[in-house]
């Protein structure tokens, strides 16, 4: 199995302002009684996006101008809280391919990379510039360059860092351990053959 080499991606963006957006905000805990992560996309930011009766609250994700955005932009310490994989899954299943923020919680960052979601860390000013361009023209195309660690849009370029281990993993298509584990399969079989309880 070969994983996509994610060295750059292109798409439209949506800005969800705020700092310390935690995993419970990203996906409320009650939606964890589920058999697949698939349906999680529609519950992304559910409690800040929907009223109790299921109608929409004002929220960037409910704004038709940003429908179809694949890049999520936000503030500082994005994804803090629990280690549950449901949060990055919900983001991915909603259709996002990358997240740009001032900073990320450690475990969330790792979980995202395992799912092949590049996380870019950019300054508040850089994110504000992108947000302003999106506000002016929601169709603005963002080019997120993992290898060069920059984001290009509407004739501008801003710096956006991707942590070295994640960069290496994404660019070389090693972001998910499964690839490397599968490569080891022949050795797995010889190791198993030496163990009596597995040899049979």
């Amino acid at each position: 199995m070969s994983l996509a080499k994610i060295s750059s991606l292109t798409g439209r963006g949506v800005f969800v302002p705020g700092n310390d957006i935690d995993t419970d905000r990203i996906i409320p805990a009650r939606f964890m009684k589920c058999v697949t992560f698939d349906g999680l996309g529609e519950f992304l930011f559910y409690d800040v996006r929907k009223n109790a009766d299921g109608t929409d609250k004002p929220h960037p994700l409910n704004d038709p101008r940003f429908e179809g955005a694949t890049v999520l932009l936000s503030g500082a310490n994005f994804g803090c809280g629990s280690s549950r994989e449901h949060a990055p899954q919900a983001i991915q299943k909603h259709g996002f391919k990358a997240v740009v923020a001032e900073g990320f919680a450690e475990i969330f960052y790792g979980n995202c990379v395992t799912l092949g979601i590049p996380c870019f860390e950019a300054s508040r000013e850089a994110i504000a510039k992108i947000a302003a361009a999106l506000e002016k023209n929601p169709q603005t195309e963002l080019i997120l360059d993992v290898a060069k660690q920059e984001i290009r849009f509407a004739g501008q370029t801003v710096q956006a860092a991707v942590r070295p281990s994640a960069r290496d993993a994404l660019v070389n298509g090693r972001w998910d351990a499964i690839g490397e584990l599968l490569e080891g399969l022949p050795t797995v079989k010889t190791t198993a053959a030496k163990l009596p309880y597995l040899a049979a």
Binding site: V35, F37, S165, A177, G184, T187, T191, A192, Y197, L198
Partner: peptide
Amino acid sequence: HAVRALANGQTQLLIGTHLIHEVTSPQ
């Protein structure tokens, strides 16, 4: 049970027995 060393320095460890239940396996 060590199969081999991985690029990041971790070990690929053979798991002889895998137990699963309804909450964490469907995904």
